[in-house]
Simulated assay, not measured.
Amino acid sequence: MIPEIQNTIAKLTNFAALDIAELLEIGTIKTYKPTAYFLRAGQVPAKFGFVISGLFRYVYMSEEGKEFTKVFMPEKSFISSYSAMISKKPSYFFIESLEPSEVLVIAYEDWEKLRRTNPKWNLLLVKLLEKGYAVKEKREREFLLLDSETRYKIFLEEYPDLEKRVRQFMIASYLGITPVALSRIRKKING
């Protein structure tokens, strides 16, 4: 499990294993069962995590109980409601485990101490924020300019094995369509 973390951080930052050990020392490995929450909407987050194995999704829930999947976060992803964490405000979304998952959990307070002690960790933060911003910008563009069939095809390209790992209603909510519309699109594409 440690090599996944080291490889992911090294690819983003070129940090050596010794540097990465600083981050691992402040983290704790925790397991999550399917449907367990890493974070609930309304909570003020005080931690973030690195998904070692498993799968999570960020999901908004309307007052009527309708779900809107913001993003899927598979292995080698960092999970957080970062804007809520830094502003010390409640998160607007849930971070839900979809499979048995293992996560390196890091307390925000410990992360801040590490960054103050060794400012080079700011590079990892910048890289993660850049990556997150690029994903957000791309997703917004797709929702504004592309039809649902094209969005589904992009989903299949970006997450080639995810369709087997998540329920169809979650994919539909990620695409911003109904499960019935997704079924029609899948039937059309698959012949």
Rank of each mutant, 00 (worst) to 15 (best):
S97K: 09
S80T: 03
K131V: 02
W121N: 11
M85Y: 02
L129V: 09
A84F: 03
S80R: 11
S97L: 05
S101L: 12
I95G: 00
S101P: 09
T117Y: 05
E102P: 04
S81P: 03
W111K: 03
E112F: 11
M85H: 01
L98W: 07
K113D: 13
L129I: 09
Y82R: 06
F93A: 11
E109G: 08
S97G: 01
P100G: 03
K127G: 02
E102D: 02
K127N: 08
V126Y: 10
A84C: 06
F93N: 07
I95Q: 01
S81E: 10
L128S: 07
E96Q: 12
S91E: 04
Y108T: 01
Y133Q: 08
K88R: 14
A107S: 15
Y92W: 05
R115H: 14
K120H: 14
V103D: 04
A84L: 08
I86E: 11
A84K: 06
I86T: 14
Y82S: 03
N122D: 13
N122V: 02
M85W: 02
G132V: 03
P100M: 12
N122E: 14
A84P: 08
V126C: 09
Y92N: 13
K127W: 06
R116K: 10
E102L: 07
S87A: 14
K127V: 01
K89I: 00
E130R: 05
Y82D: 02
Y82E: 04
W121C: 09
S87T: 15
Y108L: 08
L124Q: 08
L129W: 05
E96L: 03
S83C: 09
N118E: 07
K120F: 15
L114D: 11
T117Q: 07
L125G: 15
Y133E: 03
L104Q: 05
A107H: 15
F94E: 13
K120Y: 14
L123N: 11
I95M: 01
L129D: 01
L98N: 02
R115K: 15
E112M: 13
P90M: 03
I106R: 06
N122K: 13
A84G: 05
N122L: 13
T117L: 09
D110T: 01
L98H: 06
Y92K: 11
Y108N: 12
L128Y: 05
I106C: 07
L114E: 12
W111V: 01
N122G: 14
E112L: 13
L124R: 07
K88H: 12
V105L: 05
L129N: 10
